[in-house]
Design a protein around this nucleic acid. Structure first.
Lengths: 146, 146
DNA sequence: TATTGTTATACTCTATAACTATA
DNA sequence: TATAGTTATAGAGTATAACAATA
């Protein structure tokens, strides 16, 4: 590698590397998921509902940090595709639940995600691989509050 | 921490952690830069021009992976603010150069970036800190082609 | 032929304000 | 009073197609 296209002042910045790595990884995952007609956020929501059955739409938005307002068309689209359903909890909250079709598609999506994860980790030198999850969790940590 | 708001299936995914960490970090940097009237991408371009003086608009876009078409309003805005100027190289390329005002503002921006970098690294346990840049570079690496 | 800067355009993602009906 | 779902809307960021001028 005679000369990286990205100059030293940016290559040495964790924040810059973090952003570039993330956008590249998201784009790659979206490409992998395209044949299932899914986007990365779709899979995150489906996985969340599976892990927390009957979570409400608002609560799901809080976990994924998606604004309540933006959850509406997001959930509606997946519902229109028959991947999830809604069941009224009380007269203002509604539980999200996977349909049979949603569960089946999630099953396939999970394999795509697993392949993507493996590809990500294989890029990291073996001696550093154990550090990947702890480092990313640490970098994220205080962002949880905003 | 009795229970993380994010369920295990997502917490264990490098891709998910990567994206959440990156969006949180970018948002935090943008907050820090707000008092200078700058966004993270502005600083990246200013730093790039400083490191590669007289780089063309298209070449800068290639380095930062910003489409040629999107560079136009981006550069124009910074030029209107008097932070950078353009000088014709030949009759179709133009060299980007920092103005005096651009250099002075970049000086302040670099301090903000340095503080942000320090904050990011301090979140990481000391024993893992050495791994941050190598891990991020590795995760990014093959994304350079697309 | 390929590249530079440009315009126009569209799509995704994100953010905010406001409304209603409920708790 | 606070919350859930909703509507409307605006702003980023990103992507593509096309064009004229130039290399």
């Amino acid at each position: 590698m005679p000369g990286s296209p990205v100059p030293d002042p940016l290559r040495g910045l964790a924040g810059y590397l973090l952003r570039r790595a993330a956008t590249a990884a998201v784009a790659e995952l979206n490409r992998r998921l395209a044949r299932l007609g899914l986007r990365h956020a779709d899979v995150a929501l489906l996985m969340l509902i599976e892990a927390a059955p009957d979570i409400s739409q608002s609560a799901a938005g809080r976990v994924l940090e998606i604004e309540r307002a933006n959850m509406v068309p997001f959930v509606a689209r997946l519902e229109r595709r028959g991947l999830l359903g809604r069941r009224r909890l009380d007269r203002r909250s509604q539980a999200l639940e996977l349909t049979r079709r949603g569960r089946l598609l999630l099953r396939r999506a999970r394999r795509v995600v697993a392949a993507h994860e493996a590809a990500l980790l294989q890029r990291v030198p073996r001696r550093l691989r154990h550090a990947v999850l702890p480092v990313l969790m640490a970098l994220w940590s205080p962002g949880r509050g905003g």
